[in-house]
Design a binder for these strands. Structure first.
Lengths: 341, 341
DNA sequence: CTGTTAGCGCTTTCAT
DNA sequence: ATGAAAGCGCTAACAG
């Protein structure tokens, strides 16, 4: 067995490229970062030398010398949640072909995890930061305010962002779901909520406000557990045990909603006639089941993309000052809440 | 509005800590990286100074000086695929509390994307690399072989790994599904496959071999599209159109399988009596639907964890030499293939 | 166990 | 438009 690893040949440096191109290192550096500052003549020679040597800049050296990295930090509470994987996709897509790359920090909903991550990120001198939500701890908020780079909050909206924000109102979204169910004729509406993070709570609060007398604490089933489809089934069962006359439910996300639907099928409870179901996020599964689930679409991919765009604009010199973008949501009525009787 | 960013106060450096603790910089460096090399006395003073100044090491400077970073690179073809998000979770969990952090490279199934990513990673001098699959291009394979760090391939198994490998045989897994369906009494078995990556193809090949005369090309529906539950429904419809007498299907993953089940429900096709369904991966959805779906469980989270463990062991000095770990899979029979009549 | 000396590869002045 | 010198913050190698 051959020994692994590039034991010989040191990787080429700027100096090597410079020597081969017959210029100085700094000229190569410029040609690579800001080509217009170098004559076309030299650009050509340099490009040739880079090509020939297979030169790739050392990001560590660059970061050290310049005091900033090409990293965009992304701070999220979960990796598995499909909501965040869509955001991630948007972020990565928007970063494609730019000089920047993403670094994901996952604090797994740990109370002090976010602060710890921000400390780590700070030492990396990121070019920009994207953080989920508006409910940072005081410590996190201070860290973010003092960060020497632009910051975008996503997933939620707030008139007083740390720096920039792009998201939507979870309160309004919950309220929209409630109004839809009431308009569809349901009068005893339950609530299924898992993973009680701040945004979940806001949706729940909006729902309660708008549903008014059509709902009540006796029709709520909540758990701190992460939501899964299986869990949705269990929670539906629990709700039916404690409030059997419930005629509709708002589920804080589509996994739960799908699970609730399956539980209804098992029990022979007709959806939407005997039980209306409204989910949240409009995942793929929502439109695939029978009947398809009414859900509230949220622009997750777009939020990721947009956050990066805002960052890049600011890095590129856009004026400082708060930016607040409400990206909206969209109630999508489907068979699971088709007007009652 | 206050100007954002830490405009004043430069961040403290090793030298600042050293001065405050009354020692030299290198001693601080050692105390932080390898405490046993420093007397308890000085450790204390240094810890105190670090605390007081809020010192955090600069990873760029460290990487530049030492010639290696604390980054573990992860090269995967997709971020949205729930299979990879579980792997990610395993990787992040295993990295927790270590000095290393993950850097995700997503090449989105682009033909030359992987090579491009590896080039980028190489310039970062990663501490280790995790790559999905065994079907690298010749260029990627060469890059990986020459990488000056340990490399783990995951998701698949191969007797001749680049360096280390942990995964399972997709061929065998596909074969196991086929045998199960045949043993359950099905005789005209179809195949639904999307996103035809190398592992998908191996599962399909294993399925065909083991199903023998119980399947055939006329019962296969394939597409390069990414698989979704909605797509599973469409593909089921297509299969029923071209081979109406099909009595069971193997779906290359659970999203497809769930979609196929829903399509059967829409058409009043009884599962498992008139149509058996076997999925793949054993996602949460598989056990939540009605009837629950037979599926092949794959240890995705565990693969992510184990890959990191192998890397850390090697970094920590474990002997060189190929490592091949077959982590297995597990057929989980459920209602959707309950023995036929 | 602790310190000194050099330098990692790049970018920032400041000249020319 | 190009270059020379200096140094970013840390660690390797060698002393003591």
């Amino acid at each position: 067995m051959r020994k692994r690893g590039n034991t010989g040949a040191k990787r080429p440096t700027l100096a090597d490229v410079a020597a081969l191109a017959g210029v100085s290192a700094i000229t190569v550096s410029r040609a690579l970062r800001d080509p217009q500052k170098v004559s076309p003549q030299l650009q050509e020679q340099i490009a040739h030398a880079v090509q020939k040597l297979g030169y790739a800049p050392d990001p560590a050296a660059s970061a050290l010398a310049s005091g900033r990295s090409n990293t965009i930090g992304l701070v999220i509470p979960s990796l598995t949640n499909s909501v965040f994987s869509e955001v991630l996709r948007g972020v990565y897509d928007a970063l494609e072909e730019t000089a920047y790359s993403a670094q994901i920090g996952n604090f797994r909903y740990a109370p002090l995890g976010e602060e710890k991550l921000l400390l780590t990120f700070r030492s990396q001198r990121p070019a920009g930061l994207i953080v989920a939500g508006t409910d940072q701890t005081a410590g996190s908020r201070r860290l973010l305010e003092e960060m020497a780079c632009p910051v975008v909050q996503i997933m939620d909206i707030d008139p007083d962002p740390i720096d920039m924000i792009v998201g939507f109102s979870h309160h309004d979204a919950g309220a929209a779901a409630a109004r839809h169910l009431v308009e569809a004729g349901y009068r005893r509406i339950g609530l299924l909520a898992a993973r009680m993070d701040p945004r979940t709570q806001k949706r729940a609060a909006g729902f309660r406000t708008a549903a008014g007398a059509a709902t009540g604490p006796e029709r709520e089933v909540m758990t701190p557990e992460a939501s899964t489809t299986v869990l949705g089934g269990h929670m539906m069962a629990e709700l039916l045990a404690k409030a059997p006359d419930t005629d509709a439910i708002f589920c804080i996300n589509d996994d739960l909603a799908a699970g609730a639907l399956f539980e209804c099928q098992r029990r022979g409870i007709a959806v939407p006639e005997r039980m209306g179901i409204c989910g949240f996020n409009d995942l793929d599964i929502a439109s695939a089941v029978n009947p398809p689930l009414t859900s509230v679409f949220t622009p997750r991919y777009e939020m990721g993309r947009r956050a990066v765009e805002l960052l890049l604009a600011r890095i590129g010199g856009a004026a400082e000052g708060p930016v607040v973008e409400d990206i909206g949501f969209q109630l999508r009525p489907r068979g699971s809440t088709a007007t009652k009787g």
